[in-house]
């Protein structure tokens, strides 16, 4: 059995076919977007850091942004034989990592990232099968292109599969 994990760095994305896995480590406010076409066993993952690219003139790493990263992921999966109409999504991340004692000083870009990813997915009519977003924990995720299972590991909380 081939057990190879392809690691996706911050603000990067990648696509693969079964039997490979896609992984990204330490999602905080970033969102791991995992897409899957069950018919052809094609999977894709993006490590999205920011919601919106429109106020930046030079987006050298487009997968950093929800609005650019999701279309790239869909395009590259289609090149491997996937069809957008069959693609389904699982999401993880978008946590609020920083807390202050001052209730008026809230840092929560994670929530905005999740909202922007969902908007981008709905633009393609992609349904979200399951999600583990928000909260205040970092997440390491591994996505299995053979099954579409998404394993999520957090410090002190073990691993769960969605």
């Amino acid at each position: 059995m081939v057990l190879i994990e392809i690691h996706i760095g911050i603000a990067e994305y990648g696509v693969t076919k079964a039997p490979y896995k896609l992984a990204t480590l330490g999602l905080g406010s970033c969102v791991g977007v995992c897409l899957f076409d069950r018919t052809v066993l094609v999977a894709g993952m993006a490590h999205i850091m920011l919601p919106d690219s429109t106020s930046f003139k030079a987006a050298t790493k487009p997968a950093k942004f929800a609005d650019l990263g999701v279309p790239l992921l869909v395009r590259d999966m289609e090149r491997l034989g996937a069809r957008a109409s069959r693609v389904q999504a699982k999401l993880a991340g978008g946590a609020q990592m920083f807390m202050s004692n001052d209730k008026s000083s809230v840092l929560n870009i994670g929530q905005r990232n999740v909202g922007a990813v969902k908007a981008a997915l709905s633009g393609f009519g992609i349904r979200i099968l399951s999600e583990d977003v928000g909260g205040s924990v970092g997440r390491t995720i591994i996505f299995d292109s053979r099954t579409g299972e998404l394993s999520i590991r957090s410090l002190g909380k073990g691993t769960k599969v969605i």
């Binding site: 911050i10 480590l25 330490g26 999602l27 905080g28 406010s29 970033c30 850091m49 946590a95 990592m97 920083f98 807390m99 202050s100 000083s105 840092l107 870009i109 994670g110 205040s136 924990v137 970092g138 997440r139 390491t140 410090l155």
Partner: peptide
């Protein structure tokens, strides 16, 4: 602001 978690989840945030 305080965070207690994985380094890789905190710095990019």
């Amino acid at each position: 602001y305080l965070a207690h978690d994985m380094l890789g989840a905190i710095l990019p945030t």
